[in-house]
Amino acid sequence: MAQERTGIATFKSNPITLIGPKLKAGDSAPDFTVSKNLLEDVSLKDYAGKIKLISVVPSLDTGVCDTQTRRFNEEADKLGDDVIILTVSMDLPFAQARWCGAAGVERVITLSDHKSSSFGEAYGVLIKEFRLDMRSIFVIDKDDKITYVEYLSEMTEHPNYENAVAAVKSLL
């Protein structure tokens, strides 16, 4: 049974339970399996040799998640080809594709954790009460070591965009 962590996160000030371990800088990035589209699953290995910024959002169809994903899409152009930005949510791949098309998001790769919550459980962000992934940021180097982690304590708050981008730039 996966570890449950309580008393560390809220949704609109109401406590929520996170499933999985709390990762930290220096940890090896756990593998995961998520859906790139309806028929294609990918894992951490599919992005080997790249610096990875993983932006986790509960759902692209909410205001903060929308802003977070658009912001990292803008940053992607400035970071170069050694960096890949992945946005993970529980949204279905159809909804992710629709949202990206409507938002003009082309540089961020959206990945769906809806099938097995593999990412959420491995990275300690699966919200037990909602079966959504908690807003968080992970920066992983080319050797799949975590170099930066931000777990938000309130689901409706924005991450620290500047710190996340600085963490990526420090690896270039």
Rank of each mutant, 00 (worst) to 15 (best):
Q3F: 11
T6I: 12
I8R: 10
T10S: 11
K12A: 12
K12N: 12
S13V: 05
P15M: 09
I16R: 05
L18G: 04
I19L: 13
G20I: 07
G20C: 10
K24F: 11
G26N: 04
S28E: 13
S28H: 09
S28Q: 13
A29Y: 07
D31M: 07
D31F: 08
D31A: 13
F32A: 04
V34P: 00
V34Y: 00
N37M: 01
N37Q: 02
L39W: 14
L39R: 14
D41T: 14
V42P: 01
V42L: 02
V42R: 00
S43R: 01
S43F: 00
K45E: 12
K45T: 10
Y47G: 04
A48E: 08
A48C: 03
A48S: 15
G49Y: 09
K50P: 01
K50Y: 03
K52S: 07
L53Q: 03
L53E: 11
L53T: 02
I54P: 05
I54H: 01
V57T: 14
L60H: 13
D61C: 08
T62W: 10
G63N: 14
G63C: 11
V64I: 14
C65Q: 05
T67N: 13
T67A: 14
Q68K: 09
T69R: 03
T69E: 01
T69H: 02
R70L: 01
R71A: 15
F72N: 03
A76H: 09
D77I: 10
D77W: 04
L79V: 04
D81G: 00
V83C: 12
V83N: 11
I84Y: 01
I84K: 09
V88I: 15
S89V: 06
D91P: 09
L92N: 06
P93G: 07
F94Y: 15
A95V: 14
A95N: 11
Q96A: 11
A97P: 00
W99Y: 03
C100H: 09
G101S: 08
G101Y: 06
A103T: 01
A103G: 05
G104T: 12
E106D: 13
E106V: 08
E106H: 13
T110P: 03
T110R: 08
S112L: 06
K115V: 13
S117E: 12
S118C: 03
F119W: 12
G120E: 01
G120C: 05
G120M: 00
Y123M: 00
G124H: 00
V125L: 00
V125Q: 02
L126E: 06
L126D: 05
I127S: 03
K128Q: 07
K128E: 10
K128R: 03
E129A: 05
E129F: 08
R131E: 14
R131Y: 13
L132Q: 08
D133Q: 08
R135E: 00
I137Q: 14
I137T: 07
I137C: 05
F138V: 04
V139N: 02
D143C: 09
D144K: 11
K145T: 13
E150Q: 11
Y151R: 09
L152F: 04
S153I: 08
E154N: 10
M155K: 07
M155C: 06
P159D: 08
Y161T: 09
N163G: 12
A164S: 15
V165L: 01
A166Y: 09
A166S: 15
V168T: 14
K169N: 10
L172P: 04
